[in-house]
Write a protein that binds this DNA or RNA. Structure first.
Length: 571
RNA sequence: GCGGCUGUAGCUCAGCGGAUUAGAGCAUCGGUCUACGGAACCGAGGGUCGGGGGUUCGAAUCCCUCCAGCCGCACCA
């Protein structure tokens, strides 16, 4: 059994198929009915018949009997209203269903999601927020849908800066360096290295020599490098824990992982005849890309100095993910400025046969986080904002808000609740706008407990839990759904839309669609409360209303969880 | 110059394959109810959907063009 939408779509398709096989009924939710089908217009055109006639013919086919009634409206729309018995049955099926009607993928896909990607020995800052939050929401939702998710945290753990960082580590002394890194003071460490590099010629030449040793596989150098990597990964894990992000150290597969595969990438591209030498660099020129002079634009896989560019690494990663991991789908949650780079990498990978057409491969691009001045978000002194500082400030404000509201909690649980609210505020603000847009970071708005915010949705959930607690033990399985008033019917329809909201989010790698759904559900909920007293109702009506509350609470909790947002029992 | 993204109400944003009267939230104004959690609900005002053109019975949505902002355009990832 599919979602209510799927049942309708399937039945309508039967009708449409009789007139022209394969016609899309264009089924949508409607303001004038429960659903509407707009596909008659296009169908009538191909048939060369008046739309209303075609609509009437389809309505008369009775494929929706027992499910919904159909009326022809306007120039030829089909307005569809669910039969009360069908609606009640659909809803009843949700009561005992942990997944609330969300089907588990029949043939699970292997989805590789590349996200977060901080740099070793560098602080995680606000620039990492979107990739981390969006990627994690996609990962959680793909898992919920029953797919196999392989998260890849493509950390920057290789390249020329590591000569400098290792030399600086030696100058500090291993113990002191570890002490500094382990407390998460990555900025101080990195800037110390940078300062030494800029000021001291001898340090610079040591650094260069160290890069050569590192690339040559010198054991001691590799050991030192590992210290940097391990300390950083441990620190990242702390940040992820604070953000409640599911990434683990096992998901860290940095750039260095692909080092051994890079020569093979170049050799195979060469063997395929795709490689050209240009200005001493070895390049592929995928068709359709030009530079500012209108000349062909290269994807440089090997630089003039024999070093490999990140294009080579990304190509090696594609091969690894498709070939070894068996990816059916790959999502790269990386900022929009990289769009051209990924378009070229994917084009080359397709041309080389490393990326079959059947594998969905998408750059999940996102816009920038802006400050109040609508420029890239920075501190007053012009520095990038540390992720932990951002979160701490939000937690502090949420805590104060709880104090002000007189929330009756001990200090410890209150702090935990404040943390959950703060995460919700920041994540929801990030996830709820269409991801390609830039957005202005405004803690005041994010933390507001009213309007389209994370805390508001948490509150909507907590209210429901409160009602359900007060109701005590009630057998909701015995609920019969009369849905005899508009607000409860609207709520029911909202609940039935859950599987479609998830599908829609995944289809577009668009978390904001799920956000929109949850907010809409919360609004249906408030309308329902007003019209339908729950606890003071009696008999079957009370059970029905309690069941609606319970379904709504679980839908909110499951949806928020898919977004990486906790749904506390009380607020 | 070429390419990408963005442009919808005072502000922040939805609008998913074209479809009936363009929707929310915040803010503003006016109401409701002795509140199952008022962190509520209802209503109102407020929009040349950046401009122009085209396709169509019908365009915020598709096509073209122009404008504005941001970003990218060969060896740093």
């Amino acid at each position: 059994m599919g979602s209510t939408y799927e049942i309708l779509a399937e039945r309508l398709a039967r009708s449409f198929d009789r007139l022209a096989p394969g016609t899309d009924p264009v089924l949508r939710t409607s303001e004038r009915a429960d659903f509407q089908a707009n596909g008659v217009m296009a169908l009538a055109k191909t048939l060369g018949r008046p739309p209303r006639d075609v609509a009437a013919e389809i309505a008369a086919m009775n494929d929706l009997d027992g499910v919904a009634t159909v009326e022809v409206a306007g120039p030829g729309f089909l307005n569809i209203v669910l039969e009360p018995a069908f609606l009640a049955a659909q809803l009843g099926a949700l009561v005992g269903d942990e997944r609330l009607g969300l089907a588990r993928a029949a043939s699970p896909k292997t989805v590789v999601i590349d996200y977060s990607a901080p740099n070793v020995a560098k602080e995680m800052h606000i620039g990492h927020l979107r990739s981390t939050v969006i990627g994690d929401a996609l990962a959680r939702t793909e898992r919920l849908a029953g797919n196999r998710v392989i998260a890849r945290n493509h950390v920057g753990d290789w390249g020329t800066p590591f000569g400098m960082l290792i030399e600086y580590l030696l100058d500090l002394g291993e113990d002191r360096a570890i002490a500094e890194l382990s407390i998460g003071d990555l900025n101080t460490f990195y800037q110390g290295a940078r300062t030494a590099f800029d000021a001291d010629e001898a340090f610079r030449s040591r650094s260069r020599a160290r890069v050569v040793l590192l690339q040559g596989g010198d054991a001691e150098t590799r050991r030192l490098w590992h210290i940097l990597v391990d300390q950083s990964v441990a620190y990242f894990s702390q940040v992820y824990a604070k953000l409640d992000v599911t990434l683990t150290p096992e998901d860290v597969v940095g750039e260095s992982y692909y080092n051994d595969a890079l020569e093979g990438v170049v050799a195979d591209l060469d063997a395929l005849g795709l490689l050209e030498e240009s200005d001493g660099a070895r390049c592929v020129f995928p068709p359709g890309f030009t530079n500012r002079d209108g000349e062909r634009l290269p994807l440089i896989v090997q630089k003039r100095d024999e070093g490999f560019g990140y294009a080579a690494t990304d190509l090696a990663a594609v091969r690894d993910r498709v070939g070894r991991l068996g990816a059916n789908e790959m999502l790269y949650v990386v900022g929009a400025p990289q769009a051209q780079h990924f378009a070229m990498v994917f084009a080359v990978a397709r041309a080389a046969g490393w990326l079959p057409d059947a594998v969905r491969c998408e750059h999940v691009a996102f816009g920038s986080i802006l400050g109040p001045d609508r420029k890239m978000y920075k501190t007053r002194s012009g520095e990038t904002v540390k992720l932990v500082d951002l979160l701490d400030e939000a937690i502090e404000r949420a805590y104060e808000a709880l104090v002000e509201r007189g929330t009756d909690l001990e200090d410890e649980p209150r702090h935990e609740l404040a943390t959950q609210i703060a995460r919700a505020a920041i994540k929801y603000a990030d996830l709820s706008t269409e991801r390609q847009r830039d957005y202005v970071f405004d803690l005041n708005r994010m933390l507001a407990f009213e309007g389209d915010t994370g805390p508001y949705l948490q509150y909507a959930h907590a209210r429901l839990r409160s009602i359900l607690r007060r109701a005590g033990d009630v057998d909701l399985g015995a609920a019969t759904f009369s849905l005899d008033n508009a607000p409860s019917r609207d709520l029911a329809l909202g609940l039935l839309g859950w599987p479609d909201a998830v599908a829609s989010m995944l289809e577009g790698a668009a978390p904001h669609r799920l956000c929109t759904y949850l907010f809409d559900l919360a609004q249906r909920l408030t309308a329902f409360y007003e019209a339908c007293p729950v606890l003071s109702a009696e008999g079957a009506v009370r059970v029905e209303r309690l069941a609606l509350c319970e379904l709504a609470a679980r839908t909110l909790a499951l949806g928020l969880d898919a977004l990486g947002i906790a749904a506390p029992e009380r607020m």
